[in-house]
Design a protein around this nucleic acid. Structure first.
Lengths: 210, 210
DNA sequence: AAAAGGAATTGAACGTTGTTTAAAACTTGG
DNA sequence: CCAAGTTTTAAACAACGTTCAATTCCTTTT
C-alpha cells in the first residue's frame, strides 16, 4: 500500500496527470486506463478517483495541457514576426499547426478525435483555453480590417482557423483524398490563406462601399 | 437458438447492418455493442463475428452508409441548380451539410468523431466513397477555372469542403467559440465561400498572368 | 430413411474496461 | 496513546470485444 505521506494531495494529483500524459504520448488514448496508470505510480486504481471525477475528467485535463502547448506554438515568435507579412506569418502558423498534429499525434488525436460527453467540454476553463487559440491568428488579420469591422475580423479568424484545422484533420485521419503527387494539406492551406485573405479584402470593400 | 434457415447469409448480414444502423441512430456509438445488437435480432453475440470481421468493421459499414446518404444530399438538385449561381449552390451545400450534421448527429459523429484504427479506413471502397463527396463541389467550381487549371480546381474543392467541414465539426463538438449573438457556423461558411471564391479568381489571374 | 458431412450458432470463457464501496491502513490532533 | 478523520486498497459489479469448443441444424449422400 502506498503511504499517504509519499505525496501531498497536490503532488499526487500532478503525478497522476503527468503519468497520464506520458501514457498517452506513448500509445494514444487506448493506452490510458485507470489500472495501467495506477500501477505505473504504485497506487491502486481506485486512488485515481480520489483525485479526478472520472477518466473522462482526466482526459479533459490532458487535453487542457495539449491546448496549452498548441497555444504556445501558435503564439510563438516564429509565426508572429513583425518583419514578415501577415500572410507569411499565417502560412507559418498553418505549417506549425500541421507539424504539431503530426509530431504530437497522440495528443492531437485525443483532443479532436475522441468523443467526450458534451457536458464535459462545456467547462469554462476548457472553453477559455480554446478561445485563446484564435487570438494569434486574429492579430495577424488586423491589417485587413478597419476599426469598425471588429466582428468581421473575429469571424475571419475563426473561419480561417477552422478551415486549416479541417484540412489537417481530414488529412491526418485519412479522409482527404490527395489531388495528385505531392500536393498535401499544407499546400492546400497555403492556397487557402492566399485566396481567403485576397477575397476578404475585396468583400470588405464591397460591404463598406455599397 | 436461432435457426439457420431463418435468414439466408445475405439476409442476416443486412439484418445485422440494419439493426446496427438503428441502434446508432437511437443512441450514438455507445449504444452499439455486439451483445445488444445480437439480442435485438434474437441471435448470440458470436454470430456477428460470423458475418463481420469485428465491431470496427461493422462501424465502418455503418459509416459507409452514412457517406452514401451524405453524397445523396450534396448531389441533390437543391444545391446543383443551374438556375442559381455557383456561389448560391455552394452556400446551399454548406447549409445542407450542416443540417445533416445536426439532424443526423449520431451518424455524423460516428463518422468523424470516432477513432478507428487507420488500417481499417484504408480500404478502397471506403476511400472511394469519400472521394465522391468532393465531386459536386468541384462541379460548382468549374466556372472559376480555365481548362488548364484542373489541378487547382480539384485543390479548391478539397479546400473548401474541408473548411466547411472544419467549421461544422468545431461547432458541433463545442470547440468553435461564437463571435457574438447569433453568428454561427453557417454564417461563417457563407462568409468563407464568398471570400474564398473571390480570392480564388484573383489568385488565379495572378498566377496565369504573371 | 438414416447416416454423414459441413456450416452456422451458441454459451461460456478470457481479458479488458470504468466505477463503486466497505474495510483496512495511515496520519494527525488532543 | 487513543480517537477522529482521510486516504488507499482490494474486491466486486456490470459491461465491453473477442475467441472457441461444443452443439445444433441443414444438406447431401448412401
Amino acid at each position: 500500500m502506498a503511504r499517504r505521506s509519499d505525496h501531498s494531495r497536490e503532488e499526487l494529483q500532478t503525478l497522476i496527470l503527468d503519468t497520464a500524459w506520458t501514457l498517452v504520448g506513448q500509445g494514444g488514448t487506448e493506452t490510458l486506463s485507470a489500472r495501467k496508470l495506477a500501477s505505473k505510480i504504485g497506487y491502486a486504481a481506485g486512488t485515481i478517483y480520489n483525485h479526478f471525477d472520472s477518466m473522462d475528467d482526466l482526459i479533459l485535463r490532458v487535453n487542457g495541457r495539449t491546448l496549452d502547448e498548441l497555444f504556445a506554438v501558435l503564439n510563438s515568435p516564429a509565426c508572429n514576426d513583425p518583419a514578415h507579412s501577415p500572410v507569411q506569418n499565417m502560412k507559418k502558423m498553418a505549417a506549425l499547426y500541421m507539424e504539431f498534429a503530426k509530431t504530437r499525434a497522440p495528443y492531437w488525436l485525443m483532443l479532436f478525435n475522441t468523443a467526450l460527453p458534451p457536458e464535459r467540454t462545456e467547462i469554462t476553463w476548457y472553453q477559455e483555453k480554446i478561445d485563446l487559440l484564435f487570438a494569434p491568428l486574429e492579430t495577424q488579420l488586423t491589417s485587413f480590417f478597419t476599426a469598425g469591422q471588429e466582428k468581421r475580423k473575429k469571424m475571419a479568424a475563426r473561419i480561417l482557423w477552422s478551415s486549416i484545422h479541417g484540412l489537417c484533420f481530414l488529412e491526418e485521419t485519412d479522409k482527404l483524398p490527395l489531388v495528385s503527387g505531392k500536393i498535401g494539406a499544407l499546400d492546400m492551406a497555403n492556397y487557402l490563406i492566399e485566396s481567403f485573405v485576397s477575397g476578404v479584402v475585396i468583400v470588405n470593400k464591397l460591404k463598406s462601399g455599397g
